[in-house]
Simulated scan of single mutants.
Amino acid sequence: MRDFDFLVRAIVDAVVLMEMSDDDDLSPDLAADILDGIVVDLDRISAEGKRGICSTIASLVQSEENLRRREIVQQLPEGLGITDY
């Protein structure tokens, strides 16, 4: 894995954690604020960078054994707004 891939994996893990957390564990408002910040930052990335993120996420989907996590990860490119480049 390249450094870039590790960075994408860290973002994915953070988002999956927020998605899978109960409202008692993580405030939905706080989770939304964090996700909004991630989306804003990802919007600043070049089209090539977004393609790279999508490629790394696709690899993570293929290697994910947990069905619930896989579903969340599979939806991330669209949810993070990085599919229209």
Rank of each mutant, 00 (worst) to 15 (best):
G37L: 11
G37I: 07
M20T: 10
D22W: 04
D22I: 01
T56K: 02
L42R: 01
D33S: 14
D23V: 14
I34R: 06
C54M: 11
F6P: 00
Q75T: 06
G79T: 12
R44D: 13
M1Q: 09
S63E: 15
D36T: 14
E48Y: 05
P28D: 14
A58M: 01
A14D: 15
F6I: 12
D3S: 11
E71H: 09
L35C: 00
V8H: 04
V16H: 05
D25F: 13
V61F: 05
G79Y: 06
D23M: 03
L60N: 05
A10P: 00
D43A: 14
L30W: 08
M18I: 10
I57D: 00
V16K: 02
M20P: 00
I38W: 07
M18C: 01
R70D: 04
L60Q: 08
T83A: 05
R51I: 03
G81Y: 08
K50S: 05
L26K: 02
P28Q: 10
E48R: 06
D25E: 15
I34T: 07
K50A: 08
D24Y: 08
S55R: 11
K50Y: 09
E78H: 11
G79W: 08
G49Y: 03
G81E: 10
V15M: 05
L35I: 14
T56A: 15
R70H: 04
M20W: 01
L35D: 02
A47H: 07
Q75K: 13
I53E: 00
D41F: 03
I38F: 08
T56Q: 04
D41N: 13
I82E: 01
E71I: 01
A14S: 14
S63R: 14
I11D: 08
I72A: 00
L17I: 10
D25Y: 12
G79C: 01
S21Y: 07
R70T: 02
E19P: 00
G52S: 05
R51F: 06
D3M: 11
R2W: 03
A10Q: 10
S27C: 08
L60E: 03
V40C: 04
L7Y: 00
M18F: 03
D43R: 10
L17H: 12
L7K: 06
A58N: 12
S55A: 14
L30A: 13
R51D: 07
M20Y: 01
T56Y: 00
L35F: 08
E71A: 10
R70K: 15
L67S: 14
S21H: 04
D84F: 09
L76Y: 10
R69F: 02
R70L: 05
K50M: 05
M18K: 00
